[in-house]
Amino acid sequence: MGCLQSTGRRHVPGHEDPIILASQTAFTVSEVEALFELYKSISSSVIDDGLISKEEFQLALFKNRKKENLFANRVFDLFDVKRKGVIDFGDFVRSLNVFHPNAPQEDKIDFSFKLYDLDSTGYIERQEVKQMLIALLCESEMKLADETVEMILDKTFLEADVDQDGKIDKSEWHNFVIKNPSLLKIMTLPYLRDITTTFPSFVFNSEVDEIAT
């Protein structure tokens, strides 16, 4: 009988080889393994089934499973790449990869476009932006008169919607973000540079012979 405790990683649904995931992302093998430590804690926080449910996702983000929010739902849906209603490890790593400080800016622009294209029509429509503004106002308890919201929308669409058809297409979004780079701030997580020090226990559970740096 061995005294080392097995993590049972091979039995985690959707668990993909860290070497392959590292080859497809900006993460090193060690960082993928450190992310697995984070993944394990999130995916076992409500039901220990090796998958992240929406409830577990929200609990990890807000420490509160009851918080229903338009943005949190949208981010979850984008992480749920295979549209299964849950996030597996491959989804988790590939989605977080977009938030890596070294990820290509184009990937960040694409992800942010999908985030704001709430109904996935390929356009960010004015009514979607208004819906998100109203959600933000509710969340922050900030009060803005409807007329002010409309003025903000007018100004935004005047700048972003170059052909003035009432919706922002991908190319218009790209140009708008290039002119307003602060819009991509939410798309970078500096924490992702330090995940091996945040989750050092990965070294005890590593499945690769030599830890890549």
Partner: peptide, 29 residues
């Protein structure tokens, strides 16, 4: 009504202030 007011923030700058779009919660223990 002055849609060109230089002080007016754009809608996406405002939306980006949502705490629900900040994924750093994953890393804060």
């Amino acid at each position: 009504k002055s849609p060109d007011s230089p002080t007016l923030i754009n809608a996406f700058q405002l939306i980006g202030m949502s705490s629900c779009l900040d994924l750093s919660g994953f890393f804060e223990k």
